[in-house]
Every structure is written in structure tokens, then in C-alpha cells.
Design a protein around this nucleic acid. Sequence first.
DNA 1: CTAAAACCTCACGTTGACGTCAGAGGCAAG
DNA 2: CTTGCCTCTGACGTCAACGTGAGGTTTTAG
Lengths: 120, 120
Amino acid sequence: MRIGELAARTGVSVRALRYYEEQRLLVPERTPSGQRVYSENAVDRVRMIQHLFAAGLPSRSIEPLMPCVVTGEVTPELLERLRAERRRIEGRIDDLIRTRDRLASMIDAASAYEGRTCPR
Amino acid sequence: MRIGELAARTGVSVRALRYYEEQRLLVPERTPSGQRVYSENAVDRVRMIQHLFAAGLPSRSIEPLMPCVVTGEVTPELLERLRAERRRIEGRIDDLIRTRDRLASMIDAASAYEGRTCPR
DNA sequence: CTAAAACCTCACGTTGACGTCAGAGGCAAG
DNA sequence: CTTGCCTCTGACGTCAACGTGAGGTTTTAG
């Protein structure tokens, strides 16, 4: 499929797909005239990339994880990188939970004084 | 205390503190000569700001939350904003958990093929 | 065959949270 | 008084993940 269809099917912009290629996250084939041609599994690939972006990984961290998807080769280094990223994400989850709890107690304390002025 | 000490005690840069002031997140007093003077509770304030930044809130979202800390006034709108931010954070937590789980199953699947080539 | 739609490659613009440098003024110690 | 560190105000630089044209080619529909 060409770039427009992939964009439509994944919900990301054409520009973003070209950006992924620039970062070597998703390198498509080319027709003789130079147009990009993507395989079916590029759809899943893009979704994966989006999830990792959403998890806060920069493209420099995603790029070395991609060879696995491409060649299917699993090196110990790759596994370790995956585990490291998992730890990073778990750390971020813990941070967010702490922040949420802090925010929740702010809300509890504040709602006791709703409409008035709370002591400081 | 002056800006250098606050920076040292909070671990954020002097530049960042001036940036917070620019965004009206933390507006200090001034000496007659123009030097910034921070009160003791600015330390907690900065930590709070850092946590909210870490939670992904932009300064435009943090700024309207700050009057509470300053004046102690709790309006219904403020409470609603706090609750909205809490919901946002909880959404991000859920996303991260999903991403972590996906990553974890990638790791499980991959480690079964460690050193070899996995089927595709 | 032609016109529209989709695609191509530069290449500059944007946003947020600062980094960094320049040039000048302020402040405690010796 | 001067040395040395801290602070001040601009103001430009950075990085990531794209957005947004400009100007030209390719593919597709009628």
C-alpha cells in the first residue's frame, strides 16, 4: 500500500510516516518512480511505534528495538534493552501514581474548604 | 533566600527558576537592587511544580492551580480543574500500564528465542 | 488525453522547558 | 578598594515530533 492509505489506516499523518522513515523506524520499499510502498504489517508497526512514543520513548530509543521486528533476530543486547525500557516505564508509572496521590490529597483537603479560604 | 540557594536546595537550575517566574508559577519578592528573594515554602512549591511537569502538565495548566497555594482560595472551578488533571494523569497511567504489558509480552515471546531467530 | 488527486523532495516554522552566552551590576572578604 | 562570586536582563540556541507550504512528478478517473 502507499503512504496515504497507511496514514488513513493508522490515523497518523503522512508527514509523520515520512518522519519515521527519516528516523529509520519504518523504511518502506520504493516503486521505480520513487513512491513509498508499505507491506501489511507496517500497520502494526506504526501502532507499536505510536505506543512507544506515548510511553515517552524518544525515537533514538525505539530505533534499536526495531531490528527485532524486521529480521526477527533476538540478541541478548536487544533483550536487555527491552527490559531496560520496561523498567523505565515502570518507574514512570510509579512517579505518576505518586503525583496522582498527591493531587488527590490536595483535592480532598481543598474540597473541605470549597468556596471558602483554606488556612495556610 | 536568593536564587542560587533555592536552586541548590531543589536541584533545579537557576535558569529554570527564572523560567517559572516568567510563566508566573513562582513569583518572588525583590530586594531594592532587584535581586530575587524567595521564602522558605518556595522549596515545596518548586518540588510541586516539578512533579506536575513530570506528570506531563504544561505550565499553562499549572499556572491556574497556583493561586490556591498562594491565596488559599478554593473556587469550584479550581477544584474541577484539579479533578480534570487527576483524570488526565490516571489516563496516562492506564496507557503506560498497557504499554508496559505489551512490552512485557514482547520480552516473554522474544526470550523464548534468545540467540536464535524467531518466526514471523 | 486531461485534470484532479496523490505523491515526491527540500526546507523553514512550531511548541515547551529550559541551556548558554554576553555584558553589566551587586555584595561580602581581605 | 579590589577581587571574586553571585545575580541581573536580554536574546539566541536546542531538541523532538511533527506542521506547513513551495514547486515539481506520478497515478488515477473520466
